[in-house]
Nucleic acid binder design. Structure first.
Lengths: 220, 220, 220, 220
DNA sequence: AATGAATGAGCTTTCATTCAT
DNA sequence: TATGAATGAAAGCTCATTCAT
């Protein structure tokens, strides 16, 4: 029983596959760089306070040219969110397939979400949470459908864990407590700090687990 | 050793005292109703997407009249945030003074924060978190000073708890995990649902406590 | 043949008389101080850029109270202008009555106008010139009627001087050249500087006087 | 010794040169027509009373489009003033280069300034004087630097004239008297009237010139 | 007379979006 | 695809004036 994290190589291969299948745009293309720049600006300044001129400048084109790639600023926001959910769902599925015990699978979910937030798609994940209200209702519905797939992965594992008495809190509530604890890390966790991502993942896992023999003290 | 929550009567008396001392505006006054309406709109639509005309309409005055009360929309945002921090700091201090063991004091902190988020000042607390970037740097500095006082109450208790081995996670990190778990409740907790606030508070407390004999299962 | 300027005592006595006859308001009264403050602000900032709040603050009342003295901001402007013309017309008439030769009378006109601009009613005279377009047409007509009386004093003397060949330029044109030269002094003359007002008056007078060798007469 | 005025052809050639060198905008371009319309409106109604909507309408565009050409209304004002000073300085330098005696050069200065005020850039010159306070301090400093160059042309000639005893009044004071007399013409001179511009220039010149019998020298 | 909250029209400016080139 | 001038609705804010107290 040992948890295996995704390697950078595996992640990259998955991304290329998703690009070739047309699920997400190539991060190296004009459209891809546009989405990355948008995510960063939307996180740093907010959707409304980011002007299309700034966004265009960041990518090195003029404002009018943005609209050859996306029909509206709103479409850009939707794409940032959709592709992030799609990508992270795929990454999580891949990681789940490589871990077999329920506890390791739970570990994988936590690690994937922390990586998504703190390393790979931090700006996009922040946008997903903090700019949600800027997405119009129609687009919110679309993205919610995708999020459901993502959340189902979590709930399926938590349900199994609950049945196996690995965790003792109702899965739906436990997921929410973990969502808060994990997502808040975006506001304080420092990659260059003393606390490693692995440690943070294990601490978070221990919070979730049935508390017979946690031994948290050994980590700190 | 029994935790005592603040009664509605005590909260009200404290608010009246703070009003009379000039720390916060009377919630029943025009300025007070304006702040309440602003908090609700800013939470629901975001600061930028809320127009002063909407805000004025909500209060029952015309847009120009807003500026007799506050010099700018930005000032309204600052006041929403400042007064919320001031009020909740005072409420927490009062509750701390009425609980004596460290564990009860920790319980008090959690309960106060949950009440602030889920009952009394939910809109304002949401604004504090989600509209932070809309506050200009100068005002951010002002509010941060006030938040420091609030956070110091938490850290002082967590430090004591850590020394007494009631909790085993480094206080600064534990505070962050709890901040995330508690604040996220704004996005899912339903006052009319099955889970009572007391239960949620106790569950959250148990997460924090050293995990020898939690018995979480009895609550769900 | 010697020119006699008005003494401060004579000026004051005239002002008191005009006040008692109801032609101008007492400069020491609330209305009088208001007009003085208005003149200064209108000169320094312009009529449009001066707010009634600023004006009220200067006088020590609140903005709403202004309108107990004058029906509108426009009325204040009109009064500043009207009273200034009235006062300076009266001062000039008095000074003319105390000088008897045409040359001395011309000297008196120049001296009075310089004093009005540089000492006594500098702010008001500047407003009269620079804020003229802010006066609405109706009020412009009213003030023009008063200015005609003032200008008639000038033209009567210049006509006599022209007939006596003391000056050689057509009176109407000479008046305009002198108006420009005199009124511009508001932009550069410094009371504390080396050039005395008497000297400036005499220099200006000499410009106007008949210059044998100039041959101006051939042009007109 | 005969004074030569600039021909219309020469003026036009100079303007085209300044445009091609980037010192002023092409009067026929959108930006140029905007500046001309602004000058006229600012003179007629004042800077504050002129709205950007009026200005845009005059040019035949919508209000928002103004801001593609100039970043603010204030920038438009600055450009009106700067370009006017630049152009008239260049015109004066050209005219000075075509007149050789000091007296003719003085004649040239007077003629150029009268033409600037009464024919070519009347609206702009009026704005320069009457809207000065509407220019913010930063922009005032910029324009003052340019005005210094213009005034230096005057003072250099007047200094020479003073040394040659062609004029007898201290150059700095003489310049001010002439500034007033010349600039005031904007308020009364009528191009279609009986008085030709040449006559007015010569009359103004004669005021400045040494007058044997005046005795001005005793005062300074 | 004085107050000061409220009015409401009007201001400058912003900005996503369009479209002829 | 890319440009950038033009659009025009909508934003935050100003301010002379009113009026109940």
């Amino acid at each position: 029983m040992s948890f295996t994290a995704l390697s950078a190589k595996q992640s990259l291969a998955l991304i290329q596959q998703l690009v070739s299948e047309g699920f997400i745009v190539d991060p190296a293309s004009a459209k891809g760089r546009l989405l990355k720049a948008a995510a960063t600006l939307f996180r740093d300044k907010g959707f409304e306070r980011t002007t299309v001129r700034e966004l265009a400048k960041e990518v090195g084109i003029l404002s009018g040219s943005l609209f050859h790639h996306y029909a509206s600023k709103q479409e850009i926001l939707r794409n940032v969110m959709e592709q992030t959910v799609l990508l992270n769902t795929a990454l999580m599925e891949l990681s789940l397939s490589q871990n077999h015990s329920i506890e390791d699978k739970l570990h994988a979910l936590i690690m994937c979400e922390l990586q998504a937030i703190l390393i790979d798609t931090g700006a996009e994940m922040a946008v997903l949470v903090y700019e949600w209200r800027s997405l119009n209702p129609e687009n919110q519905a679309k993205v919610l459908t995708l999020r459901d797939n993502y959340e189902r992965l979590w709930l399926d594992i938590l349900d199994s864990a609950y049945q196996e008495e690995i965790v003792t809190i109702t899965p739906s509530i436990l997921r929410r407590l973990l969502t808060g604890a994990i997502s808040w890390s975006i506001n304080w966790y420092n990659l260059q700090g003393e606390l490693s991502l692995d440690e943070l993942a294990q601490m978070t896992l221990s919070l979730a687990l049935n508390n017979k023999n946690k031994g948290l003290s050994t980590w700190l």
